[in-house]
């Protein structure tokens, strides 16, 4: 595929902490980790989704001024960033696995509307819904 959405980013409070969360706990892979001084372009990928990168970006100068960055950090910590959805084959199994690894779940798996969904947050406060794909 040569056209389409390639990168969507999250704001995180600490890129090192986010890297550990998404790679060590969720099982994503690092795609790009490039530094230039204090600036760090960091993206990860779902192992089954090679054409898409999830950016883990810090709200900080020089990409934004410090006053704006402080506001963004507050918004992230209040869980007000847009919703994220992770599709899985077996919501209950993945829930048990991630919970045991220390992921902070906000909702246990619930069966409804022909599927199963659960909710968790990353350390920064970004909220994920984990939804079981409907079997064909």
């Amino acid at each position: 595929m040569s056209q389409g959405v390639a990168v969507v980013g999250l704001y995180v409070r600490d890129q090192e902490e986010a890297l550990r969360f998404y790679v060590d706990l969720l099982g994503f892979r690092v795609h790009t980790d490039a530094r230039n001084g204090d600036y760090r372009w960091l993206t990860v990928q779902h192992p089954e989704q090679p054409s898409f990168q999830l950016g883990l970006f810090a709200p900080q100068p020089p990409t934004m001024d410090e006053a704006t960055a402080a506001t963004v950090r507050e918004i992230v910590a209040k869980g007000a960033m847009p919703p994220l959805v992770l599709m899985v084959d077996d919501c209950r199994a993945v829930y048990a696995q991630l919970r045991d690894r220390g992921v902070e779940f906000t909702q246990e798996p619930v069966s409804r509307y022909g599927s199963v969904d659960a909710g968790f947050r990353d350390p920064s406060g970004n909220g994920w819904k984990m939804i079981q794909g409907r079997s064909a």
Binding site: R13, A77, K78, G79, E104, G125
Partner: peptide
């Protein structure tokens, strides 16, 4: 922000 994150919890 750390306090906000804990309030969110």
């Amino acid at each position: 922000p750390d306090l906000l994150r804990r309030l969110l919890r």
